[in-house]
Amino acid sequence: MIVSIASGKGGTGKTTVATSFALATKNSQLIDCDVEEPNAHIFLKPRREKRVTVSIPIPKVDLTKCNFCGKCAQICAYNALAVLNDRVLVFPHLCHGCGGCSLLCMQKAINEVDKKIGIVEIGKANGVAFVHGILNIGEVMAPPLVRAVKQNINTSKTVIIDAPPGTSCPVIEAIKGSDFCILVTEPTPFGLNDLLLAVEVVRKMKIPFGVVVNRADLGDRKVDTYCEEENIPVLMRIPFDREIAMSYSKGIPLVTAQPIYYRKFTNMFEIIKNHVCVYSSKGNLELVD
């Protein structure tokens, strides 16, 4: 089972939930897909076992073979190539590495060279199998690195994916293929606003989902009202609590600081497991109490 932890808004507590969920779940694997700012390792302190460099192929044009037909620039969806009278310009930061230009070049004038975009690190922490990706500074191509991170998914384990915030390509890439998605939010106008956006995404992707409300006794009741109206299960509430904030500020996982949460997370796991079973057998989302 693959469960991803996402949110529209940043800073709602995705990593807090993901790391404690992984620690509380037997035979789990935590995949930190927030490659622009991975931080689950701060909670889990994994021992690194392997590090792999990730590259994408970008075009290199051999001008002695090129006949300047312009086909490569025409088919590039991201306009990463410009064909002029006597030269071809490549804009590596726009290239998504699809390989279309070299495939279609009749002159065989395009070779692909590797451009490093980041690294994947694999390790282990307190029985949790750990994988994360680190995108190079200044690199915009997060989705290929997220894909490389996810290639290390071990389906014999309960896979927990910590997704980046937002609703764009890196998030889609991270949560794609999940059996269930937990949307972490907070009961403020900002939390609700971005929760609505995230709900649109998971509905469009047909991923069953539920909500975890963090800092649950802050703000207003509008997130609860919304979830009730939309039949969205609220899986857990984490209060705005000084003790929790203090352990967070020291990089201590929630379940380690407050072992009472082990049970809450294992309960949540059971709810999600049932939910996924119901969903896969009936093909539609049903509220599980």
Binding site: A77, A82, F91, L94
Partner: peptide, 13 residues
């Protein structure tokens, strides 16, 4: 979506 300047530059060139 992106690369408008490159495409326009190519057109003008």
């Amino acid at each position: 979506r992106g690369g408008a300047g490159i495409q326009s530059g190519q057109l003008v060139a």
